[in-house]
């Protein structure tokens, strides 16, 4: 490699500090920029071709009345968006999505953190338990959901187990609250392993010295957890919650297998609604408008989360 002794190695987060336009730019710096552009070129071009372009097409579709079966594609202006505003089904599904996402994120993160903390105790058998908790992540979603649909039936395995304890379980998938809860819990068990691993890794990255110092200061374990561990792993919590929220908006197969969106419309979340409109009702234009809405929602949520990080995320790297 040619000697380029003067490659500038910036200190600190480069991307955060924009280049001042006034500074004259040396040849070496320009060469460094070129390397930068080359390195990001694949993902940037990929994002343009496989994210921005398809999104643009979806926006374009959303301005049309598109019946796939008939092959009609006519410009409809903002008609689909006006329909969004007046659609009671959409309001229901937004509400369902809201409950689903909140429930999923809270349960998922709580359980993931609890499991990670338990597994961080260096107990015998930790390796095995770790594999247990992680195993659903690799199991096919369909197989996973089907087993649970058996277990959650009125006379299924869970209520059978409860009756041996003298309890009468509800008809899980047939009541609005328990149906939503069931879908959430099944999803949490499926994916919590991945988040658990992330937390576990984060916990192991917390410097022992800090803990020791706090302990010597007489801080109790819970206090140490709250004042040291949580802040230290808060960046991971942010990352995990972003991934989980975004993931929660993509839930589809689980709802299809477990509840079909019911009872009533109580588990018809936004993506399920979108899917119905597009692939069952052949309303591609309208489905595209919902897709645009979905994208905007995810975007706003993520931005809010990202913005709020400064308040609760302890250190930004």
């Amino acid at each position: 490699m040619a000697a380029a002794a003067s490659v500038p190695v910036p200190r600190g987060p480069a991307a955060e500090s924009p280049v001042s336009k006034a500074t004259p730019v040396s040849k070496a710096v320009r060469r460094d920029w070129a390397v930068g552009y080359t390195m990001v070129a694949p993902v940037v071009l990929g994002a343009l071709a496989f994210v921005v372009l398809p999104l643009g097409m979806v926006v374009w579709y959303s301005l049309h009345e598109w019946n796939v079966l008939a092959g009609t594609f006519t410009f409809a202006g903002t008609a689909n968006y006006e329909r969004l505003l007046a659609d009671p089904g959409l309001a229901d599904s937004l509400l369902a999505s809201l409950w689903f996402s909140i429930g999923l994120v809270v349960l998922n993160i709580t359980l993931a953190l609890l499991l990670a903390v338990l597994l961080d105790q260096k107990l015998p058998g930790t390796t095995t338990f770790r594999t247990f908790f992680f195993s659903p992540v690799v199991v096919s979603l369909v197989a996973w959901t089907i087993v649970w649909s058996f277990l959650l039936q009125a006379d299924g395995g869970i209520n059978g187990f409860l009756s041996t304890l003298g309890l009468e379980g509800p008809n899980w998938l047939r009541h609005e609250t328990t149906a939503m809860l069931s879908v959430i819990v099944v999803q949490v068990f499926k994916n919590v392993g991945l988040n658990m691993i992330l937390f576990l890794a984060a916990l192991q990255g917390v410097p022992v010295e800090l803990q020791e110092a706090a302990r010597l200061d007489g801080a109790g374990a819970w206090r140490r957890f709250r004042s040291i561990t949580l802040p230290m792993i808060s960046p991971t919590i942010l990352l995990v919650s972003i991934i989980t929220i975004v993931g929660s908006l993509e839930v589809f197969a689980q709802i299809d297998v477990l509840t079909g969106g019911g009872p009533g419309n109580s588990t018809t979340v936004l993506v399920y609604y979108l899917y119905q409109q597009a692939f069952r009702f052949n309303e591609f234009g309208y489905a595209s408008a919902i897709a645009v809405l979905l994208f905007v929602i995810v975007l706003v949520l993520t931005l809010l989360q990202w913005q709020s990080r400064k308040r609760w995320v302890f250190h930004e790297v």
Binding site: L48, A49, L53, G56, M57, A70, G71, T72, F73, T74
Partner: peptide
Amino acid sequence: TPIRRPRAAAAAAALATALTLTACSAG
């Protein structure tokens, strides 16, 4: 959406093919 120059041609071509919808079979 502003598209970087070198990509513009290719992207436009892809768009053109992808967006072309034959509406002839209606009715």
